[in-house]
Design a protein around this nucleic acid. Sequence first.
DNA 1: CGTGCCGTTGAGGTAAATCAATGGCTGTGG
DNA 2: CCACAGCCATTGATTTACCTCAACGGCACG
Lengths: 243, 243
Amino acid sequence: MPVACRNCPLRRREIFAPLSDQELAFVQRFKSGELKVAPNMQLLMEGSNSPQLYTVLSGQGLRYKTLENGHRQVLNFVFPGDFLGLQAGMLGEMHHSVEATTEMVLCVFDRKEFFQIFRQYPERAYDITWLAATEEHFLGESLASIGQMAAVARMAWALQRLHARAEALGLANGDSFPMPYRQQDLADALGLSLVHTNKTLARLRDRQIASWAEGHIKIHSLTALRELAGGTDESATMTRPLI
Amino acid sequence: MPVACRNCPLRRREIFAPLSDQELAFVQRFKSGELKVAPNMQLLMEGSNSPQLYTVLSGQGLRYKTLENGHRQVLNFVFPGDFLGLQAGMLGEMHHSVEATTEMVLCVFDRKEFFQIFRQYPERAYDITWLAATEEHFLGESLASIGQMAAVARMAWALQRLHARAEALGLANGDSFPMPYRQQDLADALGLSLVHTNKTLARLRDRQIASWAEGHIKIHSLTALRELAGGTDESATMTRPLI
DNA sequence: CGTGCCGTTGAGGTAAATCAATGGCTGTGG
DNA sequence: CCACAGCCATTGATTTACCTCAACGGCACG
């Protein structure tokens, strides 16, 4: 049975902006169900105009694009609290795909209701725009990272961000946090080959900065990591709306 | 003296969605003036929380980010009709800078009014979200391009997009269109060195695909260009809101 | 016990970066 | 008017970061 929005365990996290009872009632009405998906499941497909929008309750996934030449670009790693399908909602169709990496539980919303939000709940509409603007900001960071930084720096940047997000969601355990992805995923996110990704990770391990084993990443020197990454990304820890 | 919104020359272009008289009246009220800036002028600065938002009436510019290591990533090329400062409006501060490349004329809006849009004009709020989602989509494309394509393909992709945008705005003259940027700008946009950018352009010239001279790019084979770029980007020619 | 997926490592090749030099053009000041 | 400096495009020479290819071992799964 689905969780009632006001009992949503995610909302207890302070990274998510609190909602009034009345606002919660609205979100609840918007919610049409819950969905549990298995690892490797395709949630949204590039080109589809999904009738459904999701909020991630638990689990992790990937947003990615597939190119004509067969290559894949991972756009972002999906964490609990993320809103999926905004492009389908706004632009009529998805321009990237989303797949589950671990098992995921999703909160399902009906796209038909989407347009009503702008009319009736301007604060929620504002939240949605905020999410879009934040995603835009993040992609800008990624672009700068991939376009202008060397492999080690890109890697440090990615790890530091994954760490920050995991920590903000209470998934981290000290300096260690779950890393359910494959090296190939990280490679496709950073625009590196699999082999070079592996060797870059080895360098970070050798330099005692971060190590990845058994599905977990351990940060040995956050200072050094940030140094390499060229600063901290505060947008991962910023208070954000949860819809 | 400023142009009245209903006489705005941009609105005649069919790429921009038409507004009713009433809607125009609102946009007009939102407009607080006009600004003319010289080439190389900084319009918005990373980190600033500009009190002003702009719509480009004429001229071209650049959005970019400067990294700690001194490198610059050009995020996008700015064309007439583009809305500038959305990040400052939504997130409180800009996460990239914007500068004028040619002389530009801007329509100035007051950020204080920004929040009112969501309350009072849901259709405009929707437009703003549409713009954010579209920008997000574009950055995703860029990321895929820079992350997964070789230099020639990236170049073709960029040229094809610049062409499409120029054409949609009526700036093109047959297969030729104005290119006010420097090779360094293109290099910083594509994540290539200046020298390699130059050599890549030379290859496209030798292969009779596109040539760049005297501030104009001429497309000799749009088919070949698209082939290299891996498809056409329809988002450059899609009907879009003009605020 | 095979088969397939994933991580790891080495060898060798290449695309792209860096370094360096030149020429055209523009603006400036003597 | 010319001399000079600064910016930009172009080209060649050299170096390097990253890619591709190939092979191997661990591990899960049927």
